[in-house]
């Protein structure tokens, strides 16, 4: 249970990265499968060679961001379809990751890592969960803040209405590249921390990661809502935790770790199909009416708009 919570909070970084591309930029970025492993590989190699684990993790962010930069350039300057651009980078990274690691696997046992540091300070109980909650929240808040800056608003508008933001002198190419870099940077950092958590970096650890990220984003937002950015990012963090708990539950009822990719896929399909089911729509409508009533009650005080007919973000 505690392990699942801890892993979920670490994967929240990945989920926030996927949220930036998938929801904010409206760009299905498959680079993450590769950049996650790149981050893990970079951090692992650096740590084994005696680099400070904080620095090593920061380097993982940079390497992830570079992967995002490549996808961004392929897509915007090379006019390659976004999905294909991501796939190309992801496949190319497989070889690069093997080069970085010099093999398919780097063990981190006995090394000083962020997680060994955490264990020294906070043990492996609820205290360490709290530390990881704080970490996930810090990143969530940084993203909230960034999305409200001049640049962040331009990034949101790029995913929302390209024609409009171009007419206000913003280069959508540049915004997409920035978005992809931040996103993959977060994913690379996530990979670095996951490697330190499990005690090794492995060439296959990123396979199917996009589904883990998507599942967290979609499940989280379906359960916890998306009305404003702050709520949406919180939903993403919680979604990552819920996803881990669901995996933990599946393992407990007898599925084995090899079944997990199928589980992820089924979970995403369920999260995408359920909202189309009539019975579910009725529940959603009922919920919406209730919030609309609440909002109407508040309207005199806040004159805030109601949640009616809003697009899911």
């Amino acid at each position: 249970m505690i392990t699942a919570l801890e892993l979920g909070l670490i994967y929240a970084l990945v989920a926030l990265g996927v949220y930036l591309t998938f929801r904010i930029l409206n760009f299905p970025d498959l680079t993450v499968d590769g950049s996650f492993t790149s981050g893990a590989a970079t951090a692992a190699v650096l740590i084994v060679n005696g680099t400070d684990p904080f620095l090593a993790s920061a380097a993982a962010f940079v390497v992830g961001a570079l992967a995002g930069l490549i996808t961004g350039l392929l897509h915007t300057k090379g006019n390659i379809n976004g999905l294909l651009a991501g796939i190309l980078t992801m496949i190319g990274l497989y070889s690069i990751n093997l080069r970085i690691m010099g093999g398919a696997n780097i063990p981190l046992l006995g090394e000083d890592t962020l997680i060994s540091g955490l264990r020294d300070v906070a043990g492996s109980g609820w205290t360490s969960v709290l530390v990881l909650v704080a970490m996930a929240l810090v990143f969530k808040l940084i993203i909230d803040w960034f999305l409200h800056t001049d640049s962040g608003l331009a990034l949101q508008a790029t995913g929302d209405n390209e024609q409009m933001i171009t007419s206000f002198a913003v280069s959508t190419d540049r915004m997409k590249i920035i978005g992809l870099m931040i996103s993959n940077g977060l994913v690379g950092l996530g990979g670095a921390i996951v490697a330190q958590f499990q005690g090794f970096a492995d060439i296959g650890m990123g396979i199917g990661l996009i589904l883990v990220g998507l599942a967290s984003v979609i499940v989280g937002q379906a359960i916890f809502g998306t009305r404003v950015v702050m709520q949406a990012t919180l939903a993403v963090v919680l979604g990552a935790v819920v996803y881990r708990l669901a995996i933990q539950f599946a393992l407990n009822v007898g599925l084995n770790p090899n079944d997990m990719k199928l589980m992820s896929a089924v979970l995403v399909v369920a999260a995408l199909l359920l909202p189309q089911w009539k019975g579910f729509q009725r529940i959603a409508q009922w919920r919406k009416n209730r919030t609309a009533l609440d909002a109407a009650g508040d309207a005199t005080l806040t004159s805030e708009a109601k949640t009616h007919g809003e697009k899911v973000r």
Binding site: D150, S151, G152, L153, N161, K311
Partner: peptide, 27 residues
């Protein structure tokens, strides 16, 4: 001409920065 998922004030803020650099100040 507008960004539907952003608020009225955020849209105006985007318009207000036309011709200026967009940095990390609050919109």
């Amino acid at each position: 001409g507008t960004s539907p998922n952003l608020t009225i004030e955020q849209n105006l803020s985007l318009a207000d920065r036309r011709g200026y650099s967009r940095g990390l100040r609050l919109g």
